[in-house]
Amino acid sequence: MRTLLFVITVVLLGVSSTAQAQSDAISKYFSKYVDDERFTVVYISPKMFQLFDKLDINLDDAEANAIKEVVKDLRGLRILVAEENTMELYKEASQLINKKEYEVLMTVRNKGEESVDFLIKDNGGDIIDELLMIIGGPDDFVLMSFVGKIDINKISEMAKAFEEDDKE
């Protein structure tokens, strides 16, 4: 009985410490550039996301609703933007992303222009844990990480709402 208790404790400790240890790609990447002035950094905490329910968005109804739907699922947002060495930073970021952990959702390549990678971390369903977007263009490098319990269908609906808006 004592042994059993000990084993359970060890397992729980192990699990909890690994849960804390779970870090997203952006943390891994950004730890290298934490003091780099060239980066613009934005962080939105889970606490902040809880406040968003009460706020209004200054957009068309369809777009605002689509965004609100996505925001509901979000628990964190981190953005890195750089304007120098953009292509090198993009390459480095692509290499650093653990391909086992992240699944490529979509890649857009334009010769000589910008490349965009969409990567997701999921549990095999429509709900994903993290959505990662990497943009590498001649003028900008953007690394964006959305974390939470994100419904991929809501993301695509949001994209559609903006697509229809663009056509108008």
């Binding site: 962080y43 905490s45 902040m48 968003f52 968005i57 959305f146 709402a161 903006f162």
Partner: peptide, 27 residues
């Protein structure tokens, strides 16, 4: 935390801009 916007309006604007950028790239 040091990179966090100080007001929730700012944070919302950031998030909206980020999602708009995401949407346009997805399109």
């Amino acid at each position: 935390a040091q990179y966090e916007p100080q007001t929730d309006e700012e944070a919302m604007a950031e998030t909206t801009a980020a999602l708009q950028l995401l949407a346009s790239k997805l399109n």
